[in-house]
């Protein structure tokens, strides 16, 4: 399937600047995704990742350009595009069941109570919250709240899942379990997913393609890294894969040394034809990638277990 399911075409977002002018968060940004694909965006804080996601969700309108989903330009929010919010955004006056049921009744307004309840329950069970249906958000742990957020997003059976750093506030163990669950659910249901993360390992574990953004203002989509790891990968033996360190180092190198000066280093960068990086298959690497695919010397400076955080 090569047809574009999501196509972000030449979008820009500008805010009024201090001196009466305008500050562009990004200009002329192009990005496309196929149906069933899992895309992760990585970039430094403030580069405009949330802005892109909000435009994709329809919560925010671009200053220029358009977003086309399934052949139609989007106008505002839609029940086809579910959002999992970073801060879970549960309604504290509703129970777990009430929060999920709220989404279900929003999509199927004519359903009776029993049907809504049964449908919501299916998704609460899916994220492993059986037994906690009647608890309020304040009685849940951070991981459980985020699970409710996932259940709520999935319960409306969206075509696209949009996630803004969904696991960044969680401890490593909970994050791991939820990553497994999101991955399983997305694979099972063939979801198209777009996720923002600061965690390189999370991106490598979940994504089919990883979008690297340069620092703002005037951020650009610098590279698209194709994940060389097989589709059926395990979270725990990720680092044993021969290409793992190569991908990881490439991304970390980008974030540490290239994301800031990318615009000056790469004057001929074409936002419509962003270079695709295929690590471990040197014959396919596109020439404009400056560093080459793999630098063995850098490996030592990033021991496999450390997780350089890109958030400031």
């Amino acid at each position: 399937m090569t047809e574009k399911f999501i196509s972000i075409e030449a979008i820009a977002k500008r805010y009024p600047g201090a001196g009466g002018g305008e500050i562009a968060v990004f200009e002329n940004l192009w990005l496309s995704m196929q149906r069933g694909e899992f895309g992760c965006v990585i970039g430094h804080s403030g580069c405009g990742k949330t802005t892109v996601l909000n435009i994709l969700a329809g919560l925010d309108a671009p200053s220029a350009g358009a977003v086309i989903v399934d052949g139609q330009a989007i106008e505002g929010t839609s029940l086809d595009r579910a959002v999992i919010f970073q801060s879970h955004a549960l309604l504290p006056w509703r129970t777990v069941l009430g929060n999920v049921a709220y989404a279900v009744t929003s999509k199927w307004r004519d359903w009776d109570r029993a049907r809504v309840r049964a449908h919501a329950q299916t998704f609460i069970d899916l994220v492993g919250l059986t037994g906690a249906e009647h608890k309020r958000p304040s009685e849940l742990s951070g991981g459980m709240k985020q699970r409710v957020g996932i259940a709520r997003a999935l319960s409306i059976t969206p075509k696209i899942m949009l996630m803004d750093e969904p696991f960044s506030a969680l401890d490593a163990l909970t994050r791991g379990t939820l990553q497994d669950e999101v991955r399983r659910i997305c694979l099972e249901t063939g979801q198209t997913a777009f996720m923002i993360t600061h965690d390189v390992d999370e991106a490598i574990y979940l994504a089919d393609r990883i979008f690297l953004m340069t620092n703002g203002p005037a951020a650009v989509l610098a590279e698209i890294v194709e994940n060389p790891l097989p589709k059926d990968r395990g979270r725990t033996d990720l680092h044993r894969h021969p290409y793992y360190y190569a991908v990881r180092n490439h991304i970390v190198d980008f974030l540490v040394s290239r994301s800031k000066s990318f615009a000056t280093d790469t004057p001929g960068h074409d936002p419509r034809n962003v270079p695709v990086v295929r690590i471990g298959k040197p014959e396919l690497v596109i020439a404009s990638v400056a560093d080459g695919p793999l630098q063995e010397t850098k490996q030592a400076s990033w021991p496999g277990l450390s997780r350089p955080s890109t958030s400031s």
Binding site: G58, L79, V83, F85, L91, W93
Partner: peptide
């Protein structure tokens, strides 16, 4: 009212009146 709660209602395509009673009033 917290923006994210409003955004939840918006992503669920909840109408203005229903939003007023189910999100804004309780919040």
């Amino acid at each position: 009212v917290r923006k994210e709660w409003i955004n939840v209602a918006r992503t669920l395509e909840v109408g203005t009146l229903r939003r007023a009673f189910t999100v804004i009033l309780p919040a």
